[in-house]
Computed example of a mutant assay.
Amino acid sequence: MRAPEKRSYTVEEAMQKLMHFCAYRDRSQKEVEDKLIQMNMIPAAREKIIIKLMEDKFLNEERFARSFVRGKFRMKKWGKIKITQELRKREISAPLIKTGLSEIDQKVYLETLYELAERKLEKIKEPNDFKRKKKLADHLLRKGYESQLVFDCVNDLITD
């Protein structure tokens, strides 16, 4: 039994596929690059396609960073630390990460942190206040919120 042959694409076919790929939702340049590698495109063709996608506004790292931040914060309620880590994984530059994070209003950020904390606190069935604080803090830290904000929030909600 031999392995199935990988389909090869012309630059035009690949370009059409990637236009649809980028139009569906904002993509990072790394995601597009990975997709082109998966499609067995040679480096010269990959570069040509990426440049064309950028020229035609299908690929824009700043737009990607901004929409990624908005989406992860609004839908998944992630904190800035986790969002930053995920953007770094996608090879987004530090200035673009900073630009993306500017999409989060600080007042809404704190309200979200407290809302998440209160919701989690209702589910923690631990009589010991110290352990309750630890469980709550761990949950909020895993969500990617800054440690100082988490500890202030936990101390506000659970008083010894």
Rank of each mutant, 00 (worst) to 15 (best):
R2W: 11
E122H: 09
L59W: 01
K135Q: 15
P4N: 12
V69H: 00
L96K: 00
A137W: 10
I97P: 09
E33T: 15
K131L: 15
D152Y: 07
R27M: 05
K131N: 12
D129F: 15
Q38L: 08
E55N: 06
I81G: 07
Q106P: 12
I42N: 09
F58P: 04
M39V: 06
F130Q: 13
E12Q: 09
L113Y: 03
K48S: 15
K35C: 04
D138I: 05
F21H: 08
S67R: 10
F58L: 05
A94H: 08
T10A: 02
I51M: 10
K123S: 11
R132G: 09
F73S: 00
R46W: 05
G71L: 07
T112C: 03
L36G: 01
D105G: 07
Q29W: 03
M39T: 03
S147Y: 08
K134S: 09
G71T: 14
K98S: 10
E13H: 03
R7D: 09
K48N: 09
D105A: 07
R46E: 11
E13G: 01
T99M: 14
K143Y: 01
N60A: 06
R46S: 07
A137V: 08
G71W: 03
E126V: 08
D138Y: 04
V108I: 15
K17L: 15
D156P: 02
R2L: 15
R90A: 04
S93G: 07
I158K: 03
D26A: 12
E91A: 12
S28L: 00
K77G: 01
A117T: 08
E61S: 13
M19L: 08
E47Q: 14
K6N: 12
A3Y: 03
M54Q: 14
K57M: 13
E103F: 00
D156T: 14
V32N: 03
E118F: 11
I83M: 04
Q29R: 08
K52Q: 13
E91F: 04
E118Q: 13
W78D: 05
K30P: 01
C153E: 04
L157D: 08
H20R: 14
L18M: 14
R132M: 14
E118R: 13
K133Q: 10
E115H: 14
K123D: 14
I124Q: 14
M75Q: 13
D34V: 00
A23E: 10
F73P: 01
K30Q: 12
K89D: 15
Q106K: 10
K17R: 13
F151V: 05
E146Q: 11
E33P: 02
R25E: 05
E146A: 09
L59T: 10
Y145A: 09
V154A: 07
S102M: 12
A117K: 05
I97F: 02
N60G: 08
R66W: 05
T112Y: 02
E61D: 12
K89Y: 12
P43S: 02
K98Y: 10
I97N: 01
L141A: 07
P4R: 10
E122T: 14
D129R: 14
N60C: 07
N60F: 03
R66T: 01
D129A: 15
L59Y: 02
Q106W: 06
Y114R: 07
K57S: 15
H20Y: 09
F21Y: 15
R74T: 13
N60L: 00
S67E: 13
A23F: 00
